[in-house]
């Protein structure tokens, strides 16, 4: 085959090919999302109101933060089951710090650091001890939850400074601060994953860990980093949640990690690693957000909410695997 034939159109095609692929895999989720939006705006008067849209933003801001970190971990082929517990633990520690008259700004930093420390624990166990991420984070999920009960003696802590509460429940104009924080995290996350050396390394480690090692990619450092990122974002989530509720509860955010993982998977990430994107995760979060909101607007019994969420996850993964099968046979 001559080189001239292939090299000229290659430039154009190569630029198009990957973009096309991302669109295709995200297209169904986007279509379902839009269909739900259209349905809800026609069937309810209040769906498109600013107040309701902002309510969705607030309601999804916590899961968005956790899912953002989770996206990094899942693309490396790992999983972080400890996120929900870390959210609770970080909220408790921040609250205790404030009760000990630590300034609010410092208490926020402490909360994030508590999350990062939990992530560091997970990351070290995975990289240095070679333990399985699922088991490690299952264990740290229980340990962090336990600490969230032990430290305040099982009590709920409340009565924070208004400036602390503003992070979770405050507004800039009509825009919720929590929403801004999570949008910021998602954008930065998208940039890091899509454009940076570190992002490329995250994909490579998840795509083929042996090959990544052999090509000089710092596998351990990359893995350690994704768990720290996931932990730190969960810590930030803990502060937002405590602020919004004006209380830090030991049982807060239990099961949250599963919703976050669901959002990432709905967004097209593979639990085997190497595949996924922040844009997909955002779509996954939005889908879960509007479904929950729609169910509330239609006064659907809360018992049904869980069932429907589960069904959505099932269908998303089903579609994905059918799609893969079709691709593999072509």
């Amino acid at each position: 085959m001559s080189i001239k034939e292939t090299s000229v159109p290659a430039d154009r095609r190569s630029a198009e090919a990957p973009r096309q692929k991302v669109d295709l895999s995200g297209l169904t989720v986007l279509a379902v999302f839009l269909a739900i939006v259209v349905y809800l705006s026609l069937s309810t008067g209040s769906f498109l109101s600013t107040a309701n849209l902002m309510a969705i933003l607030v309601a999804t801001s916590l899961i968005a933060l956790v899912a953002c970190g989770q996206t990094f971990v899942i693309i490396t082929g790992g999983i972080d089951l400890s996120s929900g517990s870390v959210v609770a633990l970080a909220g408790i520690v921040s609250a205790m710090a404030m009760q000990a008259h630590v300034p609010v700004a410092l208490a926020v930093v402490i909360g994030v650091l508590v999350g990062a420390a939990c992530g560091l624990f997970n990351g070290l166990a995975v990289t240095m001890l070679g333990m399985n991420p699922f088991i490690v984070t299952l264990a740290s999920m229980a340990m962090a939850r336990g600490l969230a009960f032990i430290l305040p003696n099982g009590a709920t802590l409340f009565g924070f400074d208004d400036s602390f509460d503003a992070i979770g429940g405050g507004l800039v104009g009509f825009f919720p601060i929590a929403g801004i924080v999570s949008l910021l995290a998602l954008s930065i996350g998208a940039f890091i994953l899509g454009k940076t050396v570190f992002g490329s390394e995250v994909y490579a480690v998840g795509g083929n860990r042996e090959a990544a090692l052999m090509t000089g990619i710092p596998v351990r450092r990359t893995l350690l980093a994704v768990y720290v990122i996931s932990g730190a974002l969960a810590g930030l989530g803990g502060i937002i949640l405590a602020g919004r509720l004006d209380s830090a509860q030991p049982i807060a955010a239990s099961g949250l990690e599963l919703n976050a993982i669901a959002a990432v998977v709905i967004g097209g990430a593979s639990l085997f690693g190497g595949r996924g994107s922040m844009l997909g995760t955002i779509l996954g979060i939005l889908l879960i957000g509007v479904i929950n909101n729609g169910l509330t607007l239609h006064n659907v019994e809360p018992f049904w909410v869980q069932f429907i969420q589960g069904a959505v996850i099932f269908l998303a993964v089903l579609f994905d695997s059918l799609n893969n099968k079709r691709k593999a046979s072509s």
Binding site: S14, P18, S200, Y203, A204, N208, E210, A212, G274, R275
Partner: peptide, 13 residues
């Protein structure tokens, strides 16, 4: 396939 390449990735990557 095991140690040399990330098979689902592009030639570029």
């Amino acid at each position: 396939k095991l140690e040399g390449l990330v098979l689902p990735f592009s030639i570029r990557k």
